[in-house]
Computed example of a mutant assay.
Amino acid sequence: MPELRTELGDFSSIICFKAVITGMEDALGEKATAIALTTAGRARGKKLAKDLGLVGTSISLDETAAKLKQALGKEGTRLCIVHKIVAEDETIKVYTTETVCSAGEPLNSPRKCTFTMGAVWGAIEQLMGKRLKGVHTESVLRGGTHDVFEFTPLG
C-alpha cells in the first residue's frame, strides 16, 4: 500500500492521538467516548483481519498472535505489541504491552484500552466467526505485566 502522506509518512504521534481521546471525553463524556473508540477499533480490527487473510481460516492462536504482532507492532502500525493469545474454555485472552491507550498514563490511572482492545476484538471476532463480548481485565497501569483483553462468545 502506498504511503498516505508523501513527506510525513503514515504515522502521527501518541501525543496527538491522546489529545483526540481527551478532547472527545470533554465533548462527549467518558462513557460515550469509550463506546465510540471501541467501535472504531473493532471496525479497524475487522478490516485488518480481512487484509491479513484471517477470515474463515483455521490458523492457530499462536499464528494469529504472530500476524497481529507484525501488523500492530513495531513492523506495523505500532498500536501495541501482541505477545500471545490463549484459549481457556470459551474465553480467548490476548496479552499486549505498549498499547497506545496506556502510553503516558500515570501508575494507577483508571484508563482502559478502548481503541486498542477494539482493534484486537474485531480481528478475533473475524477469526472466530462469531460475536464476542470484550473486557479489559488486567492493566500495566494497575500492576499487571500486560494489558489483557478477554473475549467470550455472546449468547
Score class of each variant (00 low, 15 high):
residue 133 K to H: 14
residue 87 A to N: 12
residue 123 A to G: 01
residue 148 V to W: 12
residue 143 G to H: 09
residue 153 P to L: 13
residue 119 A to Q: 09
residue 13 S to V: 05
residue 9 G to F: 02
residue 64 T to W: 01
residue 39 T to R: 02
residue 16 C to N: 15
residue 37 L to H: 02
residue 17 F to D: 13
residue 93 K to E: 08
residue 23 G to L: 04
residue 9 G to D: 04
residue 150 E to G: 05
residue 88 E to Y: 11
residue 144 G to M: 00
residue 31 K to G: 05
residue 62 D to F: 00
residue 37 L to I: 12
residue 1 M to R: 13
residue 15 I to Q: 15
residue 22 T to S: 15
residue 52 L to V: 07
residue 125 E to L: 01
residue 149 F to R: 04
residue 43 A to M: 07
residue 35 I to M: 03
residue 74 K to S: 05
residue 69 K to P: 00
residue 41 G to I: 04
residue 118 G to M: 07
residue 151 F to D: 02
residue 68 L to C: 00
residue 87 A to W: 02
residue 26 D to F: 02
residue 122 G to P: 01
residue 66 A to S: 07
residue 138 E to C: 00
residue 11 F to L: 03
residue 84 K to A: 07
residue 136 H to M: 01
residue 145 T to D: 13
residue 103 A to D: 13
residue 142 R to F: 00
residue 39 T to K: 01
residue 15 I to G: 15
residue 140 V to W: 05
residue 19 A to S: 14
residue 64 T to Q: 02
residue 8 L to A: 12
residue 29 G to N: 02
residue 148 V to G: 03
residue 66 A to H: 01
residue 69 K to L: 05
residue 129 G to K: 03
residue 72 L to E: 00
residue 99 T to S: 10
residue 37 L to M: 14
residue 128 M to R: 15
residue 143 G to F: 01
residue 78 R to K: 13
residue 39 T to I: 07
residue 73 G to T: 00
residue 61 L to K: 06
residue 80 C to Q: 07
residue 126 Q to S: 14
residue 38 T to C: 11
residue 119 A to M: 13
residue 88 E to M: 09
residue 147 D to A: 07
residue 77 T to P: 07
residue 154 L to W: 15
residue 74 K to F: 05
residue 86 V to S: 10
residue 93 K to D: 05
residue 18 K to W: 14
residue 113 C to N: 14
residue 136 H to P: 00
residue 25 E to L: 04
residue 20 V to H: 12
residue 55 V to E: 14
residue 93 K to M: 11
residue 21 I to E: 15
residue 108 N to K: 11
residue 63 E to C: 01
residue 137 T to V: 04
residue 61 L to A: 10
residue 41 G to C: 03
residue 150 E to A: 13
residue 110 P to V: 01
residue 3 E to W: 06
residue 81 I to S: 06
residue 45 G to W: 05
residue 66 A to Y: 02
residue 128 M to H: 13
residue 25 E to N: 11
residue 124 I to L: 04
residue 134 G to M: 03
residue 91 T to L: 11
residue 5 R to W: 02
residue 98 E to M: 07
residue 141 L to R: 05
residue 80 C to H: 07
residue 128 M to E: 14
residue 42 R to C: 08
residue 141 L to Y: 04
residue 129 G to A: 02
residue 128 M to P: 05
residue 17 F to W: 15
residue 19 A to P: 11
residue 120 V to Q: 08
residue 50 K to Y: 09
residue 3 E to Q: 11
residue 136 H to D: 02
residue 31 K to N: 11
residue 54 L to P: 06
residue 106 P to Y: 10
residue 109 S to K: 10
residue 120 V to Y: 13
residue 149 F to L: 04
residue 107 L to N: 06
residue 63 E to T: 14
residue 11 F to D: 10
residue 153 P to Y: 15
residue 61 L to G: 03
residue 154 L to G: 12
residue 24 M to N: 05
residue 100 V to K: 10
residue 12 S to T: 13
residue 17 F to E: 15
residue 137 T to K: 05
residue 19 A to N: 12
residue 78 R to Q: 14
residue 55 V to W: 03
residue 43 A to H: 09
residue 29 G to T: 00
residue 22 T to K: 10
